[in-house]
Amino acid sequence: MLKNKAVLAHGLVWLVLLAVLFLVNSRERPAHAFILILLYGALNVSIFYMHYFLINPLLIGTGRYWRALTYMAVVLVVSIAVKYGIAHYYDDIILQYRDSDGQQQMLTPLQYMVMALISGLFFMLLSTAVYVVSSNFKTREDRKSLETEKLNAELAFLRSQINPHFLFNSLNSIYSLAYKKSEKTPEAILKLSEIMRYMLYESNEDLVLLEEEINYLENYIDLQKLRFKEKVYVDLHVDIDVEGHRIMPLLLISFLENAFKHGVSTDKHKPIRIDISVKNGRLNFKAENAKNQLNKDQTKGVGMTNLKRRLQLGYPDRHTINIVESEYYYSSELFIYL
Rank of each mutant, 00 (worst) to 15 (best):
N295A: 09
N292D: 15
A287N: 03
V264R: 08
R273L: 12
D297E: 08
L252Q: 05
G314W: 04
L294S: 15
D317P: 05
T299L: 04
F285E: 12
S332I: 00
H269S: 12
S331Y: 04
D297L: 05
L313P: 13
P249M: 03
T305E: 14
I272M: 12
K279W: 07
S331I: 00
V302E: 10
I276F: 08
N322G: 01
L256H: 05
I253N: 11
N306K: 08
R310S: 12
N284P: 00
L313K: 11
L311A: 14
S277L: 02
Q293Y: 06
N284R: 10
N258F: 00
L313M: 12
K261I: 03
K300I: 09
E257A: 03
L283K: 07
L256N: 05
F285G: 08
D317H: 11
N306G: 10
I253W: 10
R318T: 15
A290D: 11
N258G: 04
Y328S: 13
S265W: 01
K279N: 14
A287E: 03
K270P: 00
D275S: 08
E327T: 11
T320A: 09
Y330F: 14
L307N: 12
G263C: 15
E325G: 04
K286E: 06
N292T: 15
E325P: 05
T299N: 09
H262M: 03
G314R: 02
N258V: 00
D297S: 07
N289E: 06
E288N: 08
L251Y: 09
K279L: 13
G303I: 10
G303M: 11
G303C: 11
M304L: 15
Q312R: 07
S277Y: 00
T266Y: 10
L250C: 14
K286A: 07
P316N: 10
I253P: 02
S265N: 01
K286H: 07
V264E: 09
G301D: 14
L250P: 09
V264Y: 06
L311H: 13
I274Q: 01
K300Q: 12
N292M: 13
R273I: 14
N280L: 02
P271V: 13
K296N: 02
I274N: 01
L307F: 13
Q293D: 11
S332H: 00
G281E: 02
G301A: 06
P316K: 05
I272T: 15
G263Q: 14
F260W: 05
L252S: 02
Q312W: 02
K261M: 06
N292A: 10
S254K: 01
H262V: 08
T266L: 12
R318I: 10
D267L: 01
I272S: 08
N292K: 13
S265T: 03
I274S: 01
P271M: 12
K268Q: 05
K270C: 02
K308D: 06
N284F: 06
